Computed example of a mutant assay.
Amino acid sequence: MSSNSPDLFSDVLADLLAPLAQALVAQGMTLASATEALKQALCNAAIVAEGEGVSDSRISILTGLHRKDVRRLRSHEPVVPGRKTANRMALLIGHWATDPDFQGQDGRPRALPRESADERPAFNDLVRRLRLDMAPGSMLQALIDQGAVFQDEDGLLHLASDALVPEVGAQELVAAYHATLATHMAAATQNLLAQKGARRQFDRVLRYSHLSDASVAELDRLARDEAQSFLTRLNARAHELQQRDAEHGARGRFAAGAYILPTPDAAEKDAE
């Protein structure tokens, strides 16, 4: 990286932090809690860059953290209450909605019994397949409490139609924000820090301006349809491979995502 990279990075830092700051304010996080999280992240980053044996003094020099803070931060991992449960629920909902074994002939997630009375897999089978390290009964209750699943008069379990779009503030929404943004940031940061000739992660974006609201809406629909189709196909194949590889103790990870940001004409909106 060039010698003026810090200055270049400072120029864009405010833009990078702006949407994150909006989320912090919306979630009720103060400067003190945000600063503590940043301190932990800087300490962790220095350890990753220098190795586990790096001294507290070296971390302090690299990050500007006081050595007392470094000693404290190295002694514990921050815990986010509810994150594991929320991530598990999001994973289960995603598989229920897209796995062919749990879909009806119309391609929609079918109603599931708790235990299977025939050859078709049931809710408990779904929990076991995903290896969620959580009892099916506990997972079901968590989903019901969040309004993601409801039980009909016949005892069948239904995935709520809006389960994939959690309410504002729900743990699932925070978990989805964490999973998608953290993964994208990791890929983009690897590309930023990659040495010349090193393999770079695939990270592309299309940007167009001077579009009418109708054109923005058309591109939005097209992008959503194509992205959903791609992710559905990829998910089906990834699930097959995971089922096969997990039996052999494989530990590799893979992530792929898509984002769409349509912005109608601001001038027209302001005039309304």
Rank of each mutant, 00 (worst) to 15 (best):
M1G: 09
S2Y: 01
D7N: 06
S10M: 06
V12S: 10
L13K: 05
L17R: 11
A21R: 15
L24T: 02
M29W: 13
T30W: 07
T30A: 09
L31C: 09
S33Q: 07
A34C: 13
A34T: 11
C43K: 00
A49K: 06
G51A: 01
V54N: 05
S55D: 11
R58S: 12
R58Q: 10
I59T: 01
L65H: 02
D69N: 14
L73S: 00
H76S: 00
E77V: 06
R83V: 02
K84V: 09
T85W: 06
N87T: 02
N87Y: 01
G94S: 04
T98E: 06
D101L: 11
Q105E: 08
D106H: 03
P109K: 10
A111R: 10
R114N: 02
P121T: 01
F123M: 14
D125K: 05
L126G: 09
R128Q: 10
R129M: 03
L132H: 13
D133R: 12
P136F: 05
D145G: 07
Q146E: 15
V149R: 00
V149I: 13
V149D: 06
Q151E: 15
E153V: 03
E153R: 00
D162K: 03
L164C: 04
V165G: 02
G169I: 03
E172G: 11
L173F: 12
V174P: 01
A175F: 03
H178I: 08
T180V: 07
A188Y: 00
N191D: 15
N191Q: 13
L192M: 08
L193D: 09
Q195E: 15
Q195S: 12
K196Q: 15
G197Q: 11
R199D: 15
R199Y: 13
L206K: 06
S209I: 04
S212Y: 07
D213H: 04
D213F: 05
A214D: 14
S215Q: 07
E218C: 04
R221E: 02
L222V: 07
D225E: 10
E226G: 09
A227Y: 14
T232D: 11
R233A: 13
L234K: 12
L234C: 11
N235L: 12
A238L: 04
H239E: 03
E240K: 05
E240M: 05
L241D: 01
Q243G: 08
R244I: 04
H248L: 04
H248I: 02
A250V: 02
R251I: 07
F254C: 06
F254H: 11
A256S: 10
G257F: 15
G257C: 15
A258V: 14
A258K: 09
Y259M: 10
I260F: 14
E268S: 03
K269H: 11
